[in-house]
């Protein structure tokens, strides 16, 4: 998407008949106090529930803390994390989740939105796809656990068809791929909704003009329609990217990161180190690394996507 800074956005309430807005330095003490009263509670709230825990986490990442005793550890936790082969596996799985979440739910969401647009039966299809999004990740995990374990529903169906059972969740990378597919079932719905909104913002006049110029089918979609859905695409891809980097609930419920730590994502590593191993310092260091990755990936993506239009 290209965003241009329009004059209307930069002007401060341009009302022709009204007085010019007061400069900030010209505000009275009363106005300042009133403004502080409005933003104060929100600032305190954000400080308490977001900034303070963040500072505490960063500080904890430099300690050796087991919940009972705490010692200064310097950069030990970060060194240990980066030299741990399990951390590399965790990073690889997180990368697989990111790629899988970008490819499957986003592509399927776009396909379903385009194919079902304007069709009566399409409405039913869209609802069927969107409903799973209303389920929590935990509920999805419970359902898929029932389906995918060795004596689960899927293998029973395979058995009735005379096929051998499959170890869906017991071996890497099969278990990670299976979980990404399960996640796709749930995550596609919101993408369909967002792409539908994007499709509705494309002016029909543009499409008519393109048709008059001879564009049709795939060329019409990719050259004319899709570029005009850029705002929706940015949101969908951005959300998919951030969510995939935080993947936790489905993996925890289906494999607990196993066998061993083979299917762990960074979020699971953080949880395991903190809550199962009581290595709060190492868990905090993992959280800091994960936060850096999420912020860096989002910033790079949005910086590229929201590049201002050249003058």
């Amino acid at each position: 998407m290209t965003v241009s800074a329009s004059p209307a956005r930069t002007a401060a309430h341009p009302t022709p008949a009204g007085p010019p807005p007061a400069a900030p330095h010209g505000r009275s003490l009363k106005d300042r106090l009133a403004a502080s009263a409005f933003i104060g509670p929100a600032t305190v709230f954000v400080g308490l529930v977001l900034l303070l825990p963040m500072v505490w986490t960063i500080a904890t990442s430099f300690t050796r803390y087991n919940g009972v005793t705490m010692h200064w550890a310097g950069l030990d936790n970060y060194t240990r994390l980066l030299t741990d082969p399990g951390f590399g596996q965790s990073l690889l799985n997180t990368l697989l989740w990111s790629v899988g979440s970008l490819v499957l739910p986003v592509a399927l969401g776009l396909l379903i939105a385009v194919v079902t647009q304007g069709s009566r039966l399409g409405t039913i299809a869209r609802i069927a796809v969107i409903i799973p999004y209303a389920l929590s990740g935990t509920a999805t995990g419970v359902v898929y656990n029932f389906m995918l374990r060795s004596d689960g529903a899927v293998n029973q169906v395979l058995g009735t068809l005379g096929l051998d059972p499959v170890d869906w969740l017991l071996h890497w990378p099969m278990n990670t791929v299976t979980m990404i597919v399960a996640s796709t079932w749930q995550a596609t719905g919101i993408n369909v909704v967002l792409f539908m909104v994007g499709l509705q913002t494309v002016p029909s006049s543009t499409i008519e003009a393109a048709r008059l110029d001879g564009a049709s089918g795939g060329k019409l979609f990719w050259r004319v329609v899709f570029p005009q859905m850029a705002s929706s695409t940015i949101v969908v891809v951005g959300m998919a990217l951030a969510n995939s980097l935080k993947t936790f609930d489905l993996v925890w419920l289906l494999t607990s990161g196993g066998p061993g730590t083979a299917s762990e994502t960074l979020a699971l590593t953080m949880y395991r180190q903190t809550f199962l191993l009581s290595r709060y310092g190492l868990g905090a260091a993992t959280a800091v690394v994960l936060a850096i990755i999420v912020v860096a990936a989002s910033w790079l993506y949005l910086r590229r996507s929201l590049r201002p239009e050249p003058a």
Binding site: L170, G258, P259, G260, L277, R279
Partner: peptide
């Protein structure tokens, strides 16, 4: 406890 958790995780991987 940290040893038990990590070693049992390794035993789990061994079983597969």
């Amino acid at each position: 406890p940290q040893l038990v958790q990590t070693v049992l995780s390794d035993v789990s991987a061994f079983m597969l």
